[in-house]
Amino acid sequence: MARFLVTRTLQALATIFVVVTVAFLLGRLSGSPAALLLTENATREQIDELNTRLGFDQPLPVQYVEYLRGILGGDFGDSYRQAGVSSMDLVLERLPASLSLGAIGLALGLVLAFAATITTHLARSRTLRTTFLGLGSARQAIPDFFFGLLLVLVFSVTLGWLPSLGNRDPLAIVMPALTIATAQFVVYTRLLDNSLSEQGRLDYARTAVARGENRFRVVVGELLPNASLPVLTIAAINLGSFLGGLVIVENVFAWPGMGQLMLSAVYSRDFPVVQSGLIVVAALFILSNLLVDAASALIDPRVRRA
């Protein structure tokens, strides 16, 4: 187990290193930010002074080593647009908002999927299954940003129940979380439904039913724990695209998270902020994968040996 963890941790660190390197190279692709940061009639001296201050006068390998040294010391470079403010501080300031929205959205999606599937299986109803899967598929055919807009149209503009922007009001999380949750719903419902049906055909399930246990106990108490493992694994595997989807939802609802920050940094060509954001997202993604691997190795000895 210890060896497994060490190898996986080393792999994770190597991946982070690759991400940092790619982020650095992309940043240099755009060239010196002098054209962005100085006025049109800046003198040659001003441009040179800026390039020296940011290290753009050095050869690329030197800049790279400097950048890595800075990162080891916790310095990820200052924002181009807000002089003297660390780009990483800007990103980390937004992290809690993103994490809370992502966690609540994901949890809500899983809860909805579990509730729908358990109801279907308890009622043994084909109609219910078709309805849930049909609604879920229809939702998936609507782009997230448009679904969010429809929610705004109904609940903010027409009914006036919910605030449409920001995160000051505690109710403001309802619509972005619903947008995320409903987008995930059909994937998890279909998976859990299949996996529950499969478990239901196995001997232990038949035995339980034959013993005369009530259906609720069999489905929820005995089948569900076995059936939910693959769903949780897929939820973890999908985390990357999930983090990507968060960017869109944050922008629809002006939710002050990392995605919104990174996108506005794209518009203002504030590359260091984008760079730090990418590193944080990659680190989150890699860390969660590491945790999932460790957890499944803990549960399933076959993974450990592989």
């Binding site: 990507g244 984008v274 990418l278």
Partner: peptide, 18 residues
């Protein structure tokens, strides 16, 4: 497969303009 397209596109757009 491990890199969400949207993040790649954000990085590239920030570097060379969308």
């Amino acid at each position: 497969l491990a890199m969400p397209v949207i993040l790649v596109l954000i990085a590239l757009s920030a570097a060379v303009g969308p």
